[in-house]
Amino acid sequence: METPHLTFPLLVTLLLNGVAIGMLYFLVAVGLSVIFGLMHVLNFAHGSMSMVGAYVGLAVFRLFGDPATGTAPTWAFALAILGGAMAGFVLGWVTERFLIRPLYKRPIFLILLTLGLILVLDETVKLIWGTSPQGLVIVPGLSGTVDVLGQPFAVYRIFLISFGLLMIGLTWYVVNKTRIGIIIRAGVQDSDMVQTLGINVRQIFTLVFAFGAALAAMGGIATTPFTGVHPAMSGDFLLKTFIVVVIGGFGSTTGTALGAICLGLTEQFLPWFFPRFAAVGPVVLMAVVLLVRPEGLFSVSGRRAG
């Protein structure tokens, strides 16, 4: 196969692309990571929650858009992100409070429950919006390209990198600098002990689940200018989330950020070297990390928090 020479400007573009995609993966994955670290719930419906966010976001976007061209002003996209996040928040809140909470003592049933939720959420989405892809979301204010070392680079990717960095910064601040963050980090180690200090951990569980789903939903809507909105998103998101979280280590927000960027870069660079099997690369990477270093590549002491 003929591959163009990997020039320096191209290398920079691939790097930036990888980081931009990595930001999306961070948004989608960070909730699952913290939820697992804190509550030991592996939420298989996490990808579906992301997808619901994308669909709701799209609906909000279209409220203000031009149906003929599929475009809408930039502020409508901001509203779409917000709307999708709110949908995710409500979905996460209800799921934790009414479905997951009664099952904390039965871990296998928690897995089964979230599997069932995949079917319920995915099919409900198809019921409301149909099975065909919904077309790209075009935000004129964020379209176009700029010149980076002579290579065109999409403005939207610059937006993604900035938005992603902002969200990474926010999560880092919440986890490391606020009381809720202290409770989360403590709860990842021993939530019973946190309870005995007079803290209602269950409330924090609900909150974390809701915010995790909200971030995933944001990630869902933020991908739509690339991929459009389609029902296969949920499965894609789920697998990518697992890969990110395994690489980064469960329960760690910093690890998730690093794992997400790692996956973004792998996906950008792998096709240059192994074009035929690039698709299977990330999954193999996940399997290898699980076998060799199940606590994640970026954990220092085998402990996971922070």
Binding site: R179, I182, R185, A186, Q189, M193, L197, I199, R303
Partner: peptide, 17 residues
Amino acid sequence: GVFVDLTVAENLLLAER
């Protein structure tokens, strides 16, 4: 029940009501 990833100060802060 000391939280190993929290500093001493954070461990104590957590107990504030």
